[in-house]
């Protein structure tokens, strides 16, 4: 009985957690006319309050409009994906080896590099904003996607997380491999990557979610509208197109939601590793 009560009371915050997502899903199949009627006090300033319920006449109209009539949306959608892929590729290429080097080798300056990584990870964007801006300006990369991708490739949170996972691999494994004559690079590829794979996936998943909602960086470094990611485009959609706005918001969230559903267990591991392990 007590457990049932507990379960019920936990369902309230759970409902609050998913309510916006349910709103996005339901709203995206509600016709523009219907949704405007619900929201008319907000949009047109009439009397009473806005209401919201599941659509009486579900329709895919909004999706059709999104697909056929709004090349802008797709431009921005691809901009977001391009930035995400670029940053993830960079993290795979540079971040994973860096984590491996920090976790498995002793060399002078290692402690200092490790400290720098942690401190940089904690710094809010506003601390590094001007530094990044000046450097990007010097390299004439401002107002290109590279302005967001390149610093993102070297952001230190992801390598730090992967480092945590690599540290857990027993060092005896490497010694055994070395005895068998395996080179260091081979050890990285045949022992490190496979054993650390769940940690790598966890870290990359978190990075993916971060990239999907990136805002400050493009806001500061990108000026041309056609290069904006979705996060700068969505707030510009006027509420008179409420149906379209909800649908666009939903489709914008889709990649993140899908990956979240597929990779939940990894995600949890990633969260735990950042804070608790060792």
């Amino acid at each position: 009985m007590r457990k049932k009560l507990l379960l019920c009371s936990l369902c309230i915050p759970a409902a609050a957690a998913v309510l916006p997502l349910i709103f996005l899903i339901a709203g995206s199949v509600t016709g523009n006319v219907e949704i405007r009627e619900y929201l008319s006090p907000i949009i047109f300033g009439g009397d009473g309050y806005a209401v919201w319920h599941f659509p009486l006449y579900p329709t895919l109209r909004n999706f059709v409009e999104l697909l056929l009539d709004s090349p802008e949306f797709f431009q921005m959608f691809w901009n977001t994906q391009k930035i995400t892929v670029g940053i993830l590729a960079g993290q795979i290429l540079f971040g994973i080896p860096a984590a491996w080097g920090l976790a498995c080798y002793e060399f002078s300056g290692k402690k200092m590099i490790y400290r720098i990584y942690i401190v940089l990870m904690m710094m809010p964007f506003q601390v590094t904003m001007l530094s990044e801006y000046l450097q990007l300006k010097g390299l004439s990369l401002l107002d290109t996607h590279w302005a967001v991708i390149l610093p993102g490739m070297f952001a230190t949170f992801t390598p730090f997380l992967i480092y945590r996972f690599f540290c857990d691999i027993p060092k005896a494994l490497f010694e055994a491999a070395r005895m068998d004559g395996a080179g260091e690079i081979r050890i990285f590829f045949t022992i490190g990557l496979p054993i650390g794979s769940s940690g790598i996936i966890a870290a990359l998943l978190l990075e993916f979610l971060t990239c999907q909602s990136m805002l400050e960086e493009p806001l500061t470094f990108i000026e041309t509208k056609s290069r904006f990611p979705l996060s700068l485009y969505l707030p510009q959609i006027d509420l008179t197109q409420a149906g379209f706005a909800v649908c666009a918001s939903f489709v914008a969230a889709l990649p993140a939601v899908m990956l979240f559903l597929m990779g939940q267990d990894y995600l949890e591991q990633g969260i735990v590793a950042a804070g608790v392990k060792s």
Binding site: A14, F23, L24, L215, L232, A245, S249, A253, F260, L267
Partner: peptide, 17 residues
């Protein structure tokens, strides 16, 4: 898992709600 949903939703999508 339900409690974790908000961290997956991009800010720009949720803000409309």
């Amino acid at each position: 898992s339900t409690f974790l949903v908000p961290m997956a939703l991009p800010a720009a999508s949720v803000v409309l709600f």
